[in-house]
């Protein structure tokens, strides 16, 4: 293995650690109270926010209703950097459809840009009209834009959105390692030779370590976002099954004494294990409901979960962990080769 590959692996991972931890989270709205309002009333909204600087940069507060019409707060009282009170005068007549409307809360200031909370409140309204003077169309409002680098604020996720760089890239690296392991197993069956088998084994060993790390980090993350370390989500169950299949690969290896037989049976099993891995991780979780992004109608790597700032950290992290995995597998392979050569020498 070339030295520059190792240097590249380490520097990419160090970059992902530094950038992934130091880039600040964008501003966000944590909570609004109350969440039900009636048209024709006055209402003071208590708003708790995250990562905002309202003491030094005065915010304007809007509620966005149907057809992109915005209602501006009559007055805003700044309680602290992360807490404000906004007074709204809801006119009797509202644009859109009668009944219950979903309102999006938008807070804008010069320092932080926009903080948005979709579905922040429900407005019940009886009378509607196409245009109401208090509700201003979106294109007539000037909003300040923030220009600094930031990761998007997501409700519930909050700072843990950074885990994407660590948790997800481990799984990506695991897939690559298992794929290489399967390729070496095929080569072993076609060409023969103990070297291919040892390579296949080393890749699978590191792959299973990465898979375990992915599972454990996922459990810690799930504790704070899904509410429990193991919620028997289809993605969790299926990845545990996939790892058990690969654990059986090593049980199989240690249960056969004859080297020739062992390597060929293990190679055949390894191909089967990878073929089973693909539906377990990528097909079955998509067919049923899942909490995990990317499954059951839950998009992953879309613009909602991964914006361009995050891509600049995420892709280097994936490449870094892949190269790191190759390096670790290379170390294991060299150990197995030396061990094998020594045993051969000792036996003759």
């Amino acid at each position: 293995m070339k030295t520059w590959v190792k240097i590249l692996a380490v520097s990419l991972i160090v970059y992902s650690f530094i950038a992934g931890l130091l880039v600040p989270l964008g501003p966000g709205i944590k909570k609004v109270s109350p969440i039900k309002v009636v048209a024709g009333n006055q209402q003071i909204l208590d708003i708790w926010t995250y990562n905002t600087h309202y003491s030094s940069s005065k915010p304007t507060v809007f509620l966005k209703g149907e057809h992109d019409h915005l209602l501006k707060a009559t007055s805003v009282e700044v309680v602290g950097d992360q807490k404000i009170k906004a007074l709204f005068n809801f006119p009797k007549i509202t644009p859109g459809t009668p009944g219950i409307q979903d309102l999006t809360l938008v807070i804008n200031n010069q320092k932080d840009g926009n903080s948005i909370l979709p579905g922040a409140l429900f407005l019940s309204t009886d009378e509607v009209s196409a245009s109401v003077p208090q509700w201003i169309p979106l294109d007539q409002i000037k909003l300040e834009k923030a220009t600094f680098f930031k990761f998007p604020y997501r409700k519930i996720l909050e700072e843990t959105i950074r885990n994407i760089y660590f948790h997800v890239s481990l799984w990506f690296a695991m897939i690559l390692l298992f794929l290489l392991s399967m390729i070496r197993s095929i080569q072993h069956l076609r060409v023969g030779g103990i070297r291919f088998d040892q390579q296949a084994r080393s890749y699978a060993e590191v792959g299973i370590l990465f898979g375990m790390m992915g599972l454990v980090t996922g459990m810690l993350w799930a504790t704070y976002t899904w509410g429990a370390p193991w919620s028997f989500d289809i993605k969790q169950n299926m990845s545990a099954v996939a790892l058990l299949i690969y654990l059986a690969y090593f049980v199989l290896r240690s249960s056969i004494d004859d080297n020739d037989k062992k390597s060929r049976i293990a190679a055949a099993y390894n191909i089967f294990a990878f073929v089973a891995l693909i539906p377990l991780l990528f097909v079955i979780p998509r067919l049923v409901d899942s909490l995990h992004p990317g499954n059951g109608g839950n998009p992953a790597l879309g613009s909602d979960d991964l914006d361009n700032t995050m891509r600049m950290v995420f892709y280097p992290a994936v490449v870094g962990w892949m190269l790191m995995g190759l390096w670790m597998a290379n170390l294991l392979y060299r150990y197995h080769r030396v061990n094998e050569l020594f045993l051969e020498k000792a036996n003759t």
Partner: peptide
């Protein structure tokens, strides 16, 4: 109050422990 930042720290510690195990 700090936006669940310690979950990220915990994840990094777990990854480090995985490498130590290796």
């Amino acid at each position: 109050n700090i936006g669940k930042m310690y979950v990220v720290v915990g994840v990094i510690v777990l990854i480090f422990l995985g490498l130590v195990y290796f």
